[in-house]
Protein backbone atom coordinates (compact mmCIF):
# COMPACT_ATOMS: atom_id res chain seq x y z
CA UNK A 1 0.00 0.00 0.00
CA UNK A 2 2.91 2.33 0.71
CA UNK A 3 3.20 4.90 -2.02
CA UNK A 4 6.53 6.20 -3.16
CA UNK A 5 7.49 9.23 -1.14
CA UNK A 6 5.60 8.07 1.96
CA UNK A 7 7.66 7.27 5.02
CA UNK A 8 6.95 3.86 6.58
CA UNK A 9 5.75 5.52 9.78
CA UNK A 10 3.19 7.52 7.80
CA UNK A 11 1.98 4.66 5.64
CA UNK A 12 -1.54 3.32 5.57
CA UNK A 13 -0.49 -0.23 6.45
CA UNK A 14 1.56 0.91 9.46
CA UNK A 15 -1.34 2.88 10.91
CA UNK A 16 -3.81 0.10 10.21
CA UNK A 17 -1.66 -2.20 12.34
CA UNK A 18 -1.29 0.51 14.97
CA UNK A 19 -5.05 1.00 15.14
CA UNK A 20 -5.62 -2.73 15.59
CA UNK A 21 -2.87 -3.30 18.15
CA UNK A 22 -3.59 -0.20 20.20
CA UNK A 23 -7.31 -0.99 20.34
CA UNK A 24 -6.72 -4.64 21.18
CA UNK A 25 -4.16 -3.80 23.87
CA UNK A 26 -6.32 -1.16 25.56
CA UNK A 27 -9.36 -3.44 25.44
CA UNK A 28 -7.32 -6.24 26.99
CA UNK A 29 -6.10 -4.00 29.81
CA UNK A 30 -9.67 -2.85 30.42
CA UNK A 31 -10.89 -6.43 30.60
CA UNK A 32 -8.15 -7.38 33.09
CA UNK A 33 -8.89 -4.34 35.24
CA UNK A 34 -12.59 -5.16 35.06
CA UNK A 35 -12.00 -8.65 36.42
CA UNK A 36 -10.10 -7.19 39.35
CA UNK A 37 -12.52 -4.34 40.00
CA UNK A 38 -15.55 -6.64 39.95
CA UNK A 39 -14.08 -8.79 42.71
CA UNK A 40 -13.30 -5.67 44.75
CA UNK A 41 -16.76 -4.14 44.40
CA UNK A 42 -18.73 -7.31 45.09
CA UNK A 43 -21.02 -6.59 48.05
CA UNK A 44 -19.31 -7.69 51.25
CA UNK A 45 -15.94 -8.44 49.60
CA UNK A 46 -12.81 -8.36 51.74
CA UNK A 47 -11.74 -5.05 50.24
CA UNK A 48 -14.54 -3.51 52.26
CA UNK A 49 -15.37 -0.83 49.71
CA UNK A 50 -18.91 -2.05 49.05
CA UNK A 51 -20.50 -3.41 52.23
CA UNK A 52 -22.54 -6.56 52.61
CA UNK A 53 -26.29 -5.85 52.53
CA UNK A 54 -26.58 -6.84 56.19
CA UNK A 55 -24.72 -3.62 56.99
CA UNK A 56 -28.22 -2.19 57.42
CA UNK A 57 -28.25 -4.01 60.78
CA UNK A 58 -25.47 -1.71 61.98
CA UNK A 59 -24.94 1.91 62.84
CA UNK A 60 -23.17 3.58 59.90
CA UNK A 61 -20.59 6.19 60.76
CA UNK A 62 -18.56 8.53 58.62
CA UNK A 63 -15.16 9.55 59.90
CA UNK A 64 -11.94 11.15 58.77
CA UNK A 65 -9.21 8.70 57.80
CA UNK A 66 -5.79 10.23 58.40
CA UNK A 67 -3.98 7.84 56.11
CA UNK A 68 -6.27 8.38 53.12
CA UNK A 69 -6.85 12.03 53.99
CA UNK A 70 -10.61 11.96 53.47
CA UNK A 71 -13.81 10.77 55.12
CA UNK A 72 -14.65 7.05 55.01
CA UNK A 73 -17.70 5.06 56.13
CA UNK A 74 -17.25 3.21 59.42
CA UNK A 75 -19.44 0.26 60.36
CA UNK A 76 -20.42 0.61 63.99
CA UNK A 77 -22.21 -1.58 66.50
CA UNK A 78 -25.52 -3.34 65.88
CA UNK A 79 -28.37 -0.91 65.28
CA UNK A 80 -30.96 -2.71 63.09
CA UNK A 81 -33.05 -0.71 60.66
CA UNK A 82 -36.60 -0.34 62.07
CA UNK A 83 -35.38 -2.39 65.06
CA UNK A 84 -35.47 -5.61 63.07
CA UNK A 85 -32.24 -7.53 62.47
CA UNK A 86 -32.18 -9.34 59.11
CA UNK A 87 -29.96 -12.14 57.87
CA UNK A 88 -27.84 -11.45 54.79
CA UNK A 89 -30.39 -12.85 52.35
CA UNK A 90 -33.35 -10.96 53.83
CA UNK A 91 -31.24 -7.78 53.88
CA UNK A 92 -30.26 -8.30 50.26
CA UNK A 93 -33.92 -8.78 49.29
CA UNK A 94 -34.91 -5.59 51.10
CA UNK A 95 -32.12 -3.49 49.54
CA UNK A 96 -32.94 -5.05 46.17
CA UNK A 97 -36.59 -3.99 46.50
CA UNK A 98 -35.37 -0.50 47.38
CA UNK A 99 -33.15 -0.26 44.32
CA UNK A 100 -35.93 -1.56 42.07
CA UNK A 101 -38.27 1.07 43.50
CA UNK A 102 -35.73 3.86 42.96
CA UNK A 103 -35.32 2.76 39.35
CA UNK A 104 -39.05 2.22 38.75
CA UNK A 105 -39.91 5.72 40.06
CA UNK A 106 -37.18 7.25 37.90
CA UNK A 107 -35.52 8.99 40.87
CA UNK A 108 -32.26 9.36 38.94
CA UNK A 109 -33.72 11.96 36.57
CA UNK A 110 -33.96 14.49 39.40
CA UNK A 111 -31.45 13.19 41.97
CA UNK A 112 -27.88 11.96 41.64
CA UNK A 113 -26.76 8.60 43.07
CA UNK A 114 -23.00 8.46 43.71
CA UNK A 115 -23.01 11.75 41.80
CA UNK A 116 -24.60 10.34 38.63
CA UNK A 117 -28.04 11.39 37.50
CA UNK A 118 -29.77 14.77 37.22
CA UNK A 119 -29.14 17.97 39.13
CA UNK A 120 -32.64 19.13 40.01
CA UNK A 121 -32.61 17.60 43.50
CA UNK A 122 -29.94 16.72 46.09
CA UNK A 123 -27.43 13.89 45.82
CA UNK A 124 -28.57 10.72 47.59
CA UNK A 125 -25.15 9.12 48.18
CA UNK A 126 -25.11 10.08 51.86
CA UNK A 127 -28.86 10.69 52.28
CA UNK A 128 -28.97 8.36 55.30
CA UNK A 129 -26.30 10.40 57.07
CA UNK A 130 -27.58 13.85 56.14
CA UNK A 131 -27.63 16.24 59.10
CA UNK A 132 -31.04 17.45 57.91
CA UNK A 133 -32.66 14.52 59.72
CA UNK A 134 -31.68 16.11 63.04
CA UNK A 135 -30.65 13.10 65.06
CA UNK A 136 -30.41 9.35 64.82
CA UNK A 137 -33.50 8.71 66.94
CA UNK A 138 -35.87 10.71 64.74
CA UNK A 139 -34.32 9.76 61.39
CA UNK A 140 -36.24 6.58 60.50
CA UNK A 141 -39.56 8.15 61.40
CA UNK A 142 -38.84 11.40 59.53
CA UNK A 143 -37.64 9.56 56.43
CA UNK A 144 -40.76 7.39 56.44
CA UNK A 145 -43.06 10.38 56.86
CA UNK A 146 -41.30 12.31 54.13
CA UNK A 147 -41.36 9.48 51.60
CA UNK A 148 -45.05 8.76 52.26
CA UNK A 149 -46.00 12.28 51.22
CA UNK A 150 -43.10 14.41 49.96
CA UNK A 151 -45.08 17.46 48.76
CA UNK A 152 -46.70 17.88 52.19
CA UNK A 153 -43.38 17.46 54.02
CA UNK A 154 -41.22 19.37 51.59
CA UNK A 155 -38.52 21.65 52.92
CA UNK A 156 -37.56 23.53 49.80
CA UNK A 157 -35.20 26.01 51.48
CA UNK A 158 -36.54 28.80 49.32
CA UNK A 159 -36.22 27.06 45.95
CA UNK A 160 -39.89 26.19 45.68
CA UNK A 161 -38.84 22.79 44.37
CA UNK A 162 -40.94 20.02 45.86
CA UNK A 163 -40.60 16.31 45.33
CA UNK A 164 -43.69 14.91 43.58
CA UNK A 165 -45.52 12.17 45.43
CA UNK A 166 -44.20 8.83 44.13
CA UNK A 167 -47.08 7.02 45.92
CA UNK A 168 -44.82 4.48 47.57
CA UNK A 169 -46.36 1.56 49.44
CA UNK A 170 -45.26 0.96 53.06
CA UNK A 171 -43.03 -1.87 51.89
CA UNK A 172 -41.47 0.31 49.21
CA UNK A 173 -40.77 3.08 51.73
CA UNK A 174 -38.93 0.68 54.05
CA UNK A 175 -37.04 -0.79 51.11
CA UNK A 176 -35.96 2.61 49.79
CA UNK A 177 -34.71 3.60 53.25
CA UNK A 178 -32.77 0.32 53.51
CA UNK A 179 -31.24 0.97 50.09
CA UNK A 180 -30.20 4.49 51.13
CA UNK A 181 -28.71 3.19 54.39
CA UNK A 182 -26.67 0.58 52.50
CA UNK A 183 -25.61 3.18 49.91
CA UNK A 184 -24.27 5.49 52.61
CA UNK A 185 -21.81 2.77 53.67
CA UNK A 186 -20.15 2.55 50.22
CA UNK A 187 -16.57 3.85 50.24
CA UNK A 188 -16.60 6.59 47.58
CA UNK A 189 -13.04 7.90 48.02
CA UNK A 190 -14.41 10.82 50.02
CA UNK A 191 -17.14 11.92 47.59
CA UNK A 192 -19.08 14.16 48.03
CA UNK A 193 -16.32 16.42 49.21
CA UNK A 194 -16.30 17.63 52.78
CA UNK A 195 -19.57 15.93 53.72
CA UNK A 196 -20.34 16.22 57.41
CA UNK A 197 -22.78 13.63 58.77
CA UNK A 198 -25.45 14.14 61.38
CA UNK A 199 -24.34 13.69 65.01
CA UNK A 200 -23.08 10.14 65.39
CA UNK A 201 -23.69 7.71 68.21
CA UNK A 202 -20.96 5.41 69.49
CA UNK A 203 -19.11 3.73 66.63
CA UNK A 204 -16.53 1.82 68.64
CA UNK A 205 -18.84 -0.40 70.67
CA UNK A 206 -19.58 -4.04 70.05
CA UNK A 207 -19.17 -4.38 66.29
CA UNK A 208 -20.49 -7.92 65.97
Amino acid sequence: MAEPGTEWWASESFWRKCAIFVTAFMALVLVLLTFHTLTVIAAGSEAGRVPAYSVINHRIGYEFDDERNHMVPVIGPVAPLFGEALDEEAARALVDHGKLTVQARNCMNCHTLLGNGAYYAPDLTKAWLDPGWGNEQARELLMTMFLKDPPANARTFGTGRRMPNPHLTDDEVRAVIAYLKWMSAIDTNGFPSGFTPLPQGDLRGDAS
Partner: peptide, 8 residues
Protein backbone atom coordinates in the same frame (compact mmCIF):
# COMPACT_ATOMS: atom_id res chain seq x y z
CA UNK B 1 -7.24 13.75 48.58
CA UNK B 2 -9.11 16.47 50.29
CA UNK B 3 -7.17 19.38 51.58
CA UNK B 4 -9.02 22.30 53.12
CA UNK B 5 -6.56 24.65 51.45
CA UNK B 6 -7.95 23.60 48.12
CA UNK B 7 -11.45 24.86 48.73
CA UNK B 8 -10.73 28.28 47.29
Amino acid sequence: MVDPGRIH
